[in-house]
Design a protein around this nucleic acid. Structure first.
Lengths: 215, 215
DNA sequence: AATATTTTTTAGATGCGTCTAAAATAAACT
DNA sequence: AGTTTATTTTAGACGCATCTAAAAAATATT
Protein backbone atom coordinates (compact mmCIF):
# COMPACT_ATOMS: atom_id res chain seq x y z
CA UNK A 1 0.00 0.00 0.00
CA UNK A 2 1.36 3.41 -0.91
CA UNK A 3 1.80 6.33 1.41
CA UNK A 4 -1.07 8.11 -0.31
CA UNK A 5 -3.46 5.17 -0.17
CA UNK A 6 -2.80 4.90 3.53
CA UNK A 7 -3.61 8.55 4.07
CA UNK A 8 -6.91 8.25 2.23
CA UNK A 9 -7.84 5.16 4.17
CA UNK A 10 -7.09 6.84 7.45
CA UNK A 11 -9.13 9.90 6.53
CA UNK A 12 -12.10 7.82 5.46
CA UNK A 13 -11.83 5.88 8.69
CA UNK A 14 -11.95 9.02 10.78
CA UNK A 15 -14.78 10.55 8.78
CA UNK A 16 -16.91 7.40 8.96
CA UNK A 17 -16.09 6.36 12.51
CA UNK A 18 -18.64 8.74 14.00
CA UNK A 19 -21.48 8.52 11.53
CA UNK A 20 -21.24 4.96 10.18
CA UNK A 21 -22.65 6.42 6.96
CA UNK A 22 -20.90 6.68 3.65
CA UNK A 23 -18.76 9.77 3.33
CA UNK A 24 -18.79 12.13 0.36
CA UNK A 25 -16.00 12.82 -2.07
CA UNK A 26 -16.04 16.47 -1.12
CA UNK A 27 -15.78 15.75 2.59
CA UNK A 28 -12.64 13.74 1.93
CA UNK A 29 -11.21 16.39 -0.35
CA UNK A 30 -11.78 19.09 2.22
CA UNK A 31 -10.27 17.08 5.05
CA UNK A 32 -7.21 16.22 3.02
CA UNK A 33 -6.86 19.64 1.49
CA UNK A 34 -6.95 18.27 -2.02
CA UNK A 35 -9.30 18.34 -5.02
CA UNK A 36 -12.40 16.25 -5.45
CA UNK A 37 -11.07 14.91 -8.73
CA UNK A 38 -8.00 13.54 -6.99
CA UNK A 39 -10.23 11.87 -4.45
CA UNK A 40 -12.32 10.25 -7.14
CA UNK A 41 -9.21 8.80 -8.75
CA UNK A 42 -8.04 7.34 -5.48
CA UNK A 43 -11.45 5.93 -4.56
CA UNK A 44 -11.48 3.94 -7.77
CA UNK A 45 -8.09 2.57 -6.93
CA UNK A 46 -9.05 1.66 -3.38
CA UNK A 47 -12.28 0.04 -4.57
CA UNK A 48 -10.27 -2.02 -7.02
CA UNK A 49 -8.27 -3.34 -4.08
CA UNK A 50 -11.39 -4.10 -2.04
CA UNK A 51 -10.53 -1.57 0.61
CA UNK A 52 -13.60 0.62 0.13
CA UNK A 53 -17.19 0.27 -1.04
CA UNK A 54 -17.52 2.90 -3.67
CA UNK A 55 -20.49 3.67 -5.86
CA UNK A 56 -20.31 6.59 -8.23
CA UNK A 57 -21.97 9.69 -6.82
CA UNK A 58 -23.02 7.75 -3.71
CA UNK A 59 -20.05 8.29 -1.45
CA UNK A 60 -17.73 5.73 0.05
CA UNK A 61 -17.28 3.51 3.11
CA UNK A 62 -14.60 1.09 4.24
CA UNK A 63 -14.77 -2.64 3.63
CA UNK A 64 -13.72 -4.97 6.42
CA UNK A 65 -10.29 -5.12 4.80
CA UNK A 66 -10.14 -1.37 4.62
CA UNK A 67 -11.28 -0.93 8.18
CA UNK A 68 -8.59 -3.22 9.49
CA UNK A 69 -5.92 -1.54 7.38
CA UNK A 70 -7.06 1.87 8.62
CA UNK A 71 -6.98 0.70 12.21
CA UNK A 72 -3.43 -0.48 11.78
CA UNK A 73 -2.42 2.96 10.56
CA UNK A 74 -4.21 4.60 13.48
CA UNK A 75 -2.48 2.12 15.77
CA UNK A 76 0.90 3.11 14.42
CA UNK A 77 0.12 6.79 14.60
CA UNK A 78 -0.99 6.66 18.21
CA UNK A 79 1.81 4.39 19.37
CA UNK A 80 4.37 6.72 17.84
CA UNK A 81 2.70 9.70 19.46
CA UNK A 82 2.89 7.92 22.78
CA UNK A 83 6.56 7.18 22.18
CA UNK A 84 7.33 10.79 21.35
CA UNK A 85 5.63 12.10 24.48
CA UNK A 86 6.60 9.42 26.96
CA UNK A 87 10.13 8.67 25.85
CA UNK A 88 11.38 11.64 23.86
CA UNK A 89 9.79 14.39 25.93
CA UNK A 90 7.74 15.92 23.15
CA UNK A 91 4.75 17.91 24.29
CA UNK A 92 1.34 16.76 23.13
CA UNK A 93 0.97 19.60 20.66
CA UNK A 94 4.20 18.74 18.80
CA UNK A 95 3.68 15.09 18.00
CA UNK A 96 1.15 15.10 15.21
CA UNK A 97 3.30 15.99 12.21
CA UNK A 98 6.06 13.60 13.10
CA UNK A 99 3.62 10.79 13.83
CA UNK A 100 2.04 11.45 10.43
CA UNK A 101 5.33 10.42 8.91
CA UNK A 102 6.14 7.59 11.29
CA UNK A 103 2.76 5.94 10.80
CA UNK A 104 3.79 4.91 7.29
CA UNK A 105 6.85 2.91 8.31
CA UNK A 106 6.27 -0.64 7.21
CA UNK A 107 7.29 -3.27 9.73
CA UNK A 108 4.94 -5.32 11.79
CA UNK A 109 7.74 -6.34 14.06
CA UNK A 110 8.67 -2.72 14.69
CA UNK A 111 5.22 -1.65 15.72
CA UNK A 112 4.61 -4.63 17.95
CA UNK A 113 7.98 -4.24 19.63
CA UNK A 114 7.27 -0.56 20.10
CA UNK A 115 3.91 -1.46 21.62
CA UNK A 116 5.65 -3.72 24.13
CA UNK A 117 8.36 -1.16 24.83
CA UNK A 118 5.68 1.36 25.74
CA UNK A 119 3.92 -1.15 27.99
CA UNK A 120 1.00 -1.84 25.64
CA UNK A 121 -0.77 1.45 26.24
CA UNK A 122 -4.50 1.59 25.49
CA UNK A 123 -4.60 5.35 24.94
CA UNK A 124 -2.39 7.93 23.30
CA UNK A 125 -1.34 11.28 24.80
CA UNK A 126 -4.62 12.87 23.68
CA UNK A 127 -6.75 10.20 25.30
CA UNK A 128 -7.58 8.46 22.04
CA UNK A 129 -7.73 4.65 22.06
CA UNK A 130 -4.88 2.65 20.53
CA UNK A 131 -6.08 -0.39 18.54
CA UNK A 132 -4.23 -3.58 19.45
CA UNK A 133 -2.41 -5.80 16.94
CA UNK A 134 -5.73 -7.38 15.91
CA UNK A 135 -7.47 -4.06 15.55
CA UNK A 136 -9.46 -4.29 18.75
CA UNK A 137 -10.25 -1.02 20.46
CA UNK A 138 -11.15 -0.58 24.09
CA UNK A 139 -13.99 1.89 24.11
CA UNK A 140 -14.20 4.10 27.15
CA UNK A 141 -17.50 5.82 27.71
CA UNK A 142 -16.80 9.49 27.94
CA UNK A 143 -18.78 12.70 27.56
CA UNK A 144 -18.01 16.17 26.42
CA UNK A 145 -17.47 18.68 29.18
CA UNK A 146 -20.13 20.82 27.50
CA UNK A 147 -22.73 18.15 28.30
CA UNK A 148 -22.25 18.50 32.04
CA UNK A 149 -24.54 20.59 34.21
CA UNK A 150 -23.78 22.94 37.03
CA UNK A 151 -22.08 21.28 40.02
CA UNK A 152 -21.24 18.18 38.04
CA UNK A 153 -17.61 17.22 37.67
CA UNK A 154 -15.29 14.67 36.15
CA UNK A 155 -11.79 13.88 35.08
CA UNK A 156 -10.41 15.03 31.76
CA UNK A 157 -9.69 11.88 29.75
CA UNK A 158 -9.24 13.19 26.25
CA UNK A 159 -9.51 15.95 23.69
CA UNK A 160 -11.66 16.03 20.59
CA UNK A 161 -9.69 18.69 18.74
CA UNK A 162 -6.01 17.86 18.73
CA UNK A 163 -4.78 20.99 16.99
CA UNK A 164 -1.63 22.54 18.30
CA UNK A 165 -3.45 25.78 19.14
CA UNK A 166 -6.01 24.05 21.32
CA UNK A 167 -3.44 21.89 23.09
CA UNK A 168 -1.22 24.88 23.80
CA UNK A 169 -4.22 26.68 25.25
CA UNK A 170 -4.87 23.75 27.55
CA UNK A 171 -1.24 23.71 28.66
CA UNK A 172 -1.47 27.41 29.43
CA UNK A 173 -4.59 26.84 31.54
CA UNK A 174 -2.95 23.84 33.14
CA UNK A 175 -5.59 21.46 31.91
CA UNK A 176 -4.17 18.02 31.22
CA UNK A 177 -5.35 14.44 30.98
CA UNK A 178 -6.28 13.45 34.54
CA UNK A 179 -7.25 16.95 35.62
CA UNK A 180 -10.30 17.14 37.85
CA UNK A 181 -12.76 19.58 36.32
CA UNK A 182 -15.95 20.86 37.96
CA UNK A 183 -18.67 23.06 36.48
CA UNK A 184 -19.23 26.03 38.75
CA UNK A 185 -21.55 27.97 36.51
CA UNK A 186 -23.12 27.55 33.10
CA UNK A 187 -23.83 30.80 31.25
CA UNK A 188 -27.08 30.41 29.36
CA UNK A 189 -26.46 33.42 27.14
CA UNK A 190 -23.46 32.02 25.22
CA UNK A 191 -23.20 28.55 26.76
CA UNK A 192 -19.81 29.36 28.22
CA UNK A 193 -18.73 27.81 31.50
CA UNK A 194 -17.08 28.80 34.70
CA UNK A 195 -15.08 25.82 35.82
CA UNK A 196 -12.66 24.77 38.51
CA UNK A 197 -9.53 22.91 37.46
CA UNK A 198 -7.72 21.64 40.47
CA UNK A 199 -7.81 24.65 42.73
CA UNK A 200 -8.07 27.31 40.02
CA UNK A 201 -11.23 28.80 38.59
CA UNK A 202 -11.56 29.99 35.04
CA UNK A 203 -13.99 30.85 32.27
CA UNK A 204 -14.06 28.76 29.12
CA UNK A 205 -16.06 29.17 25.95
CA UNK A 206 -18.51 26.56 24.76
CA UNK A 207 -16.08 25.72 21.99
CA UNK A 208 -13.45 24.75 24.54
CA UNK A 209 -15.95 22.74 26.57
CA UNK A 210 -17.10 20.96 23.42
CA UNK A 211 -13.60 19.67 22.78
CA UNK A 212 -12.81 18.20 26.18
CA UNK A 213 -13.76 14.64 27.08
CA UNK A 214 -14.73 13.96 30.67
CA UNK A 215 -15.23 10.75 32.56
CA UNK B 1 14.62 16.81 -0.30
CA UNK B 2 12.76 13.80 -1.63
CA UNK B 3 13.10 10.25 -0.42
CA UNK B 4 14.86 9.36 -3.65
CA UNK B 5 17.30 12.25 -3.57
CA UNK B 6 18.27 11.26 -0.06
CA UNK B 7 18.95 7.71 -1.13
CA UNK B 8 21.19 8.82 -3.96
CA UNK B 9 23.07 11.18 -1.70
CA UNK B 10 23.63 8.46 0.85
CA UNK B 11 24.87 6.04 -1.77
CA UNK B 12 27.29 8.57 -3.24
CA UNK B 13 28.51 9.33 0.26
CA UNK B 14 29.26 5.70 0.96
CA UNK B 15 30.90 5.13 -2.42
CA UNK B 16 33.14 8.17 -2.11
CA UNK B 17 33.93 7.96 1.59
CA UNK B 18 36.70 5.45 1.03
CA UNK B 19 38.27 6.67 -2.17
CA UNK B 20 37.73 10.45 -2.10
CA UNK B 21 37.57 10.20 -5.90
CA UNK B 22 34.58 10.90 -8.06
CA UNK B 23 32.30 7.93 -8.45
CA UNK B 24 30.90 6.66 -11.75
CA UNK B 25 27.33 6.59 -12.89
CA UNK B 26 27.49 2.85 -13.27
CA UNK B 27 28.83 2.31 -9.78
CA UNK B 28 25.86 4.17 -8.38
CA UNK B 29 23.42 2.32 -10.61
CA UNK B 30 24.81 -1.01 -9.54
CA UNK B 31 24.76 -0.16 -5.84
CA UNK B 32 21.21 1.09 -6.03
CA UNK B 33 20.01 -1.66 -8.30
CA UNK B 34 18.73 0.76 -10.88
CA UNK B 35 19.61 1.87 -14.41
CA UNK B 36 22.41 4.20 -15.39
CA UNK B 37 19.94 6.44 -17.18
CA UNK B 38 17.97 6.93 -14.00
CA UNK B 39 21.17 7.84 -12.20
CA UNK B 40 22.07 10.42 -14.82
CA UNK B 41 18.69 12.06 -14.43
CA UNK B 42 19.09 12.28 -10.69
CA UNK B 43 22.66 13.56 -10.86
CA UNK B 44 21.50 16.49 -12.96
CA UNK B 45 18.88 17.25 -10.38
CA UNK B 46 21.29 17.02 -7.46
CA UNK B 47 23.85 19.16 -9.29
CA UNK B 48 21.14 21.77 -9.85
CA UNK B 49 20.65 21.90 -6.09
CA UNK B 50 24.36 22.19 -5.44
CA UNK B 51 24.51 18.88 -3.65
CA UNK B 52 26.93 17.20 -6.04
CA UNK B 53 29.74 18.17 -8.41
CA UNK B 54 28.76 16.58 -11.63
CA UNK B 55 30.49 16.80 -14.99
CA UNK B 56 29.12 14.80 -17.87
CA UNK B 57 30.99 11.55 -18.40
CA UNK B 58 33.36 12.42 -15.54
CA UNK B 59 31.58 10.96 -12.56
CA UNK B 60 30.29 12.71 -9.48
CA UNK B 61 31.31 13.78 -5.99
CA UNK B 62 29.53 15.50 -3.12
CA UNK B 63 29.70 19.23 -2.52
CA UNK B 64 30.05 20.43 1.05
CA UNK B 65 26.29 20.86 1.15
CA UNK B 66 25.81 17.38 -0.16
CA UNK B 67 28.29 15.88 2.24
CA UNK B 68 26.55 17.42 5.21
CA UNK B 69 23.14 16.32 3.98
CA UNK B 70 24.45 12.79 3.47
CA UNK B 71 25.94 12.72 6.93
CA UNK B 72 22.62 13.73 8.41
CA UNK B 73 20.96 10.80 6.69
CA UNK B 74 23.67 8.44 7.89
CA UNK B 75 23.23 9.93 11.38
CA UNK B 76 19.54 9.16 11.31
CA UNK B 77 20.05 5.69 9.95
CA UNK B 78 22.56 4.74 12.60
CA UNK B 79 20.67 6.30 15.47
CA UNK B 80 17.54 4.42 14.46
CA UNK B 81 19.52 1.19 14.21
CA UNK B 82 20.84 1.79 17.68
CA UNK B 83 17.33 2.43 18.94
CA UNK B 84 16.03 -0.77 17.39
CA UNK B 85 18.75 -2.89 18.92
CA UNK B 86 19.10 -1.24 22.30
CA UNK B 87 15.50 -0.42 23.05
CA UNK B 88 13.33 -2.68 20.94
CA UNK B 89 15.42 -5.85 21.12
CA UNK B 90 16.02 -6.24 17.42
CA UNK B 91 19.07 -8.27 16.53
CA UNK B 92 21.75 -6.55 14.49
CA UNK B 93 20.87 -8.43 11.32
CA UNK B 94 17.24 -7.25 11.36
CA UNK B 95 17.63 -3.51 11.65
CA UNK B 96 18.76 -2.43 8.23
CA UNK B 97 15.52 -2.46 6.25
CA UNK B 98 13.55 -0.69 8.93
CA UNK B 99 16.27 1.91 9.44
CA UNK B 100 16.24 2.50 5.68
CA UNK B 101 12.70 3.73 6.09
CA UNK B 102 13.16 5.57 9.36
CA UNK B 103 16.15 7.53 8.08
CA UNK B 104 13.82 9.56 5.85
CA UNK B 105 11.62 10.90 8.64
CA UNK B 106 11.95 14.66 8.61
CA UNK B 107 12.24 16.24 12.03
CA UNK B 108 15.39 17.69 13.47
CA UNK B 109 13.87 17.71 16.90
CA UNK B 110 13.02 14.03 16.63
CA UNK B 111 16.50 12.93 15.73
CA UNK B 112 18.19 15.08 18.34
CA UNK B 113 15.80 13.92 21.05
CA UNK B 114 16.38 10.34 19.96
CA UNK B 115 20.12 10.94 20.16
CA UNK B 116 19.73 12.14 23.75
CA UNK B 117 17.38 9.30 24.61
CA UNK B 118 20.02 6.82 23.48
CA UNK B 119 22.71 8.60 25.47
CA UNK B 120 24.46 10.21 22.47
CA UNK B 121 26.07 7.05 21.19
CA UNK B 122 29.11 7.41 18.95
CA UNK B 123 28.72 4.07 17.23
CA UNK B 124 25.85 2.01 15.92
CA UNK B 125 25.28 -1.72 16.56
CA UNK B 126 27.67 -2.62 13.72
CA UNK B 127 30.47 -0.47 15.09
CA UNK B 128 30.00 2.29 12.52
CA UNK B 129 30.41 5.88 13.71
CA UNK B 130 27.34 8.05 14.25
CA UNK B 131 27.82 11.65 13.05
CA UNK B 132 26.75 14.25 15.60
CA UNK B 133 24.22 17.01 14.94
CA UNK B 134 26.91 19.08 13.20
CA UNK B 135 28.11 16.18 11.08
CA UNK B 136 31.26 15.52 13.07
CA UNK B 137 32.44 11.94 13.15
CA UNK B 138 34.73 10.41 15.71
CA UNK B 139 37.16 8.31 13.76
CA UNK B 140 38.45 5.26 15.52
CA UNK B 141 41.53 3.71 14.08
CA UNK B 142 40.74 0.12 13.36
CA UNK B 143 42.15 -2.62 11.17
CA UNK B 144 40.71 -5.58 9.40
CA UNK B 145 41.19 -8.87 11.16
CA UNK B 146 42.72 -10.15 7.93
CA UNK B 147 45.62 -7.70 8.39
CA UNK B 148 46.73 -9.27 11.65
CA UNK B 149 49.56 -11.77 11.86
CA UNK B 150 49.88 -14.97 13.82
CA UNK B 151 49.72 -14.49 17.59
CA UNK B 152 48.36 -10.98 17.28
CA UNK B 153 44.98 -10.25 18.80
CA UNK B 154 42.42 -7.52 19.31
CA UNK B 155 38.86 -6.70 20.09
CA UNK B 156 36.15 -6.82 17.48
CA UNK B 157 34.88 -3.26 17.10
CA UNK B 158 32.93 -3.37 13.87
CA UNK B 159 31.89 -5.16 10.70
CA UNK B 160 32.53 -4.07 7.14
CA UNK B 161 29.79 -6.14 5.55
CA UNK B 162 26.50 -5.63 7.34
CA UNK B 163 24.45 -8.12 5.37
CA UNK B 164 22.03 -10.23 7.29
CA UNK B 165 23.81 -13.41 6.19
CA UNK B 166 27.14 -12.30 7.54
CA UNK B 167 25.72 -11.04 10.81
CA UNK B 168 23.79 -14.24 11.36
CA UNK B 169 27.00 -16.18 10.76
CA UNK B 170 28.74 -14.09 13.41
CA UNK B 171 25.91 -14.70 15.87
CA UNK B 172 26.21 -18.43 15.22
CA UNK B 173 29.95 -18.32 15.89
CA UNK B 174 29.34 -16.13 18.93
CA UNK B 175 31.38 -13.30 17.54
CA UNK B 176 30.05 -9.94 18.67
CA UNK B 177 31.30 -6.40 19.13
CA UNK B 178 33.67 -6.53 22.08
CA UNK B 179 34.75 -10.12 21.46
CA UNK B 180 38.43 -10.79 22.02
CA UNK B 181 39.86 -12.40 18.89
CA UNK B 182 43.33 -13.88 18.53
CA UNK B 183 45.03 -15.28 15.43
CA UNK B 184 46.27 -18.77 16.17
CA UNK B 185 47.29 -19.67 12.68
CA UNK B 186 47.30 -18.06 9.26
CA UNK B 187 46.98 -20.46 6.37
CA UNK B 188 49.16 -19.23 3.52
CA UNK B 189 47.46 -21.42 0.94
CA UNK B 190 44.03 -19.73 1.00
CA UNK B 191 44.68 -16.96 3.53
CA UNK B 192 42.17 -18.44 5.92
CA UNK B 193 42.66 -18.14 9.65
CA UNK B 194 42.43 -20.24 12.74
CA UNK B 195 41.28 -17.93 15.50
CA UNK B 196 40.29 -18.01 19.12
CA UNK B 197 37.16 -16.15 20.14
CA UNK B 198 36.85 -16.05 23.89
CA UNK B 199 37.67 -19.62 24.77
CA UNK B 200 36.61 -21.25 21.52
CA UNK B 201 38.76 -21.95 18.49
CA UNK B 202 37.47 -21.90 14.94
CA UNK B 203 38.47 -21.62 11.31
CA UNK B 204 37.37 -18.65 9.29
CA UNK B 205 37.85 -17.85 5.61
CA UNK B 206 39.75 -14.82 4.44
CA UNK B 207 36.45 -13.30 3.36
CA UNK B 208 35.21 -13.43 6.93
CA UNK B 209 38.45 -11.99 8.27
CA UNK B 210 38.28 -9.20 5.69
CA UNK B 211 34.95 -8.05 7.03
CA UNK B 212 35.76 -7.82 10.71
CA UNK B 213 37.26 -4.69 12.22
CA UNK B 214 39.68 -5.11 15.08
CA UNK B 215 41.16 -2.68 17.50
C1' DA C 1 -41.80 19.78 -13.51
C1' DA C 2 -38.41 22.75 -15.20
C1' DT C 3 -34.49 25.29 -14.04
C1' DA C 4 -30.58 26.57 -11.32
C1' DT C 5 -27.07 25.14 -8.23
C1' DT C 6 -24.03 22.05 -6.16
C1' DT C 7 -21.50 17.89 -6.22
C1' DT C 8 -19.02 14.50 -8.53
C1' DT C 9 -16.75 12.47 -12.35
C1' DT C 10 -14.12 12.51 -16.65
C1' DA C 11 -10.61 14.17 -19.75
C1' DG C 12 -6.36 15.83 -20.37
C1' DA C 13 -1.99 17.94 -18.45
C1' DT C 14 2.06 18.18 -15.13
C1' DG C 15 5.99 16.69 -12.06
C1' DC C 16 8.61 12.93 -10.20
C1' DG C 17 11.08 8.88 -10.66
C1' DT C 18 11.62 5.19 -13.27
C1' DC C 19 12.38 2.44 -17.61
C1' DT C 20 14.04 0.93 -22.64
C1' DA C 21 16.29 1.87 -26.80
C1' DA C 22 19.28 4.59 -29.29
C1' DA C 23 22.95 8.00 -29.66
C1' DA C 24 27.18 10.09 -27.94
C1' DT C 25 31.40 9.86 -25.63
C1' DA C 26 35.34 7.65 -23.45
C1' DA C 27 38.43 3.79 -22.89
C1' DA C 28 40.70 -0.28 -24.63
C1' DC C 29 42.80 -2.80 -28.24
C1' DT C 30 44.97 -4.05 -32.24
C1' DA D 1 45.50 6.11 -35.60
C1' DG D 2 41.55 3.56 -36.36
C1' DT D 3 38.39 0.30 -34.65
C1' DT D 4 36.03 -2.17 -31.18
C1' DT D 5 34.03 -2.21 -26.65
C1' DA D 6 32.23 -0.26 -22.60
C1' DT D 7 30.22 3.57 -20.36
C1' DT D 8 27.26 7.38 -20.14
C1' DT D 9 23.78 10.40 -21.80
C1' DT D 10 19.61 11.59 -24.40
C1' DA D 11 15.02 10.82 -26.13
C1' DG D 12 10.78 9.16 -25.40
C1' DA D 13 7.54 6.36 -22.64
C1' DC D 14 5.04 4.82 -18.35
C1' DG D 15 2.92 4.70 -13.58
C1' DC D 16 1.64 7.40 -9.68
C1' DA D 17 -0.48 11.22 -7.62
C1' DT D 18 -1.79 15.44 -8.43
C1' DC D 19 -4.08 19.45 -10.85
C1' DT D 20 -7.55 22.39 -13.97
C1' DA D 21 -11.38 22.70 -16.87
C1' DA D 22 -15.36 20.76 -18.64
C1' DA D 23 -19.09 17.37 -18.59
C1' DA D 24 -22.41 14.60 -16.06
C1' DA D 25 -25.31 13.55 -12.29
C1' DA D 26 -27.65 14.69 -8.12
C1' DT D 27 -29.86 18.11 -5.30
C1' DA D 28 -32.27 22.37 -4.40
C1' DT D 29 -35.28 26.06 -5.88
C1' DT D 30 -38.95 28.26 -7.92
Amino acid sequence: MTYSEENYLKTIYHLTSMTEEAVSTNAIAEKMDTKASSVTDMLKKLAEKDLVNYIKYQGVSLTENGKLAAKMIVRKHRLWETFLVEKLEFSWDEVHDVAEQLEHIKSEKLINKLDDFLGNPTEDPHGDPIPDAEGRIIKVEKRLLSELEKNQSGICVGVKDTSSDFLKYLDKQEIALGSQIAIIEKETFDNSFKIRVGSKELMISNKIASNLYIQ
